[in-house]
Design a protein around this nucleic acid. Sequence first.
DNA 1: AAGGGTGCCAACCGCGTTTAG
DNA 2: GCTAAACGCGGTTGGCACCCT
Length: 303
Amino acid sequence: MGKGRAPCCDKSKVKRGPWSPQEDLTLITFIQKHGHHNWRSLPKLAGLMRCGKSCRLRWINYLRPDVKRGNFTKEEEDAIIHFHQTLGNKWSKIASFLPGRTDNEIKNVWNTHLKKRISPNSSPSSSSSSSSISCTHDQTDHDKNCAIVHEEENYESRDSPSSSHLHDKCMDTKQELCEEANELHEIQLLLDHDDSDDITSAYLQNKEMLFPLDSLLHHHEAHISTELFQNTSEDLVTKPQSFDHLQPCEFEEINGEFDLWTQLVESNSPVPSHNNEEYKEWFNFMDNQTYLDDFTLVGDVCL
DNA sequence: AAGGGTGCCAACCGCGTTTAG
DNA sequence: GCTAAACGCGGTTGGCACCCT
């Protein structure tokens, strides 16, 4: 093999660009049935003319049932600013503290809104973490969780405008900061231990363990929403809504396109309780909608 | 109303890390 | 221990929507 990395797929044979509703359904249905053990082979098996990486990205950023969509709350934005000061451009880490938000989404929000808000004079995000941190915490040599704790403990002593603002917004006393830091540390350890990025996969791969990390998410959510933030516990995670009002094959074309999320997931129905039946129902509903209800084997490829 | 500028976001690209053989 | 494949992450970009003139 020559120098350099081989391309992940034959670009001449894969479709690129925006995903169609049909592709979304195909991907959802396949993952529902088979999980995503191997992203590289998934599109072939599912009959998608897509690169595996593209499938993964689409699933993680858009199709996962636990993805929260819609505008970021002020609290979430403040949290992003704060965690960015601590972690730098570690978008996936930051995302782990914001249930339902993806790293891509957070990155976009940072680049489009928050970076400007922080300060036009301060160094941009790309300058790897904040200088105030790097001088005191060598994160390459220490567990980042410890860095978070230290950072939180030192939080009050920092005097940057944004830090003061966040401090006023979220924290009252140093004791609270310490408690918060400890909680975040615990959460982070849990997240590091359990692959929270793979929640749905875990569910799919073992249907007897419906959302095994649900309690963890609740735990995580509760800590953040009730202590770091306030008044956001109900809407931190937008999980699949009850869609009893939608009968199969009732997709409506809105503005010339089929907006799957709007019609299936982000309905105005009440926020569901976090119970397993609704997830089952969600998947069953998607199953009923798809034209790939059963995969027909042709050779070694499902079509 | 039309055209240009700007902002936003979904998706792609490429590299570092992890895993499997 | 080595190598290649696969995964995951962060940076970048294309294209659409909106705003302004």
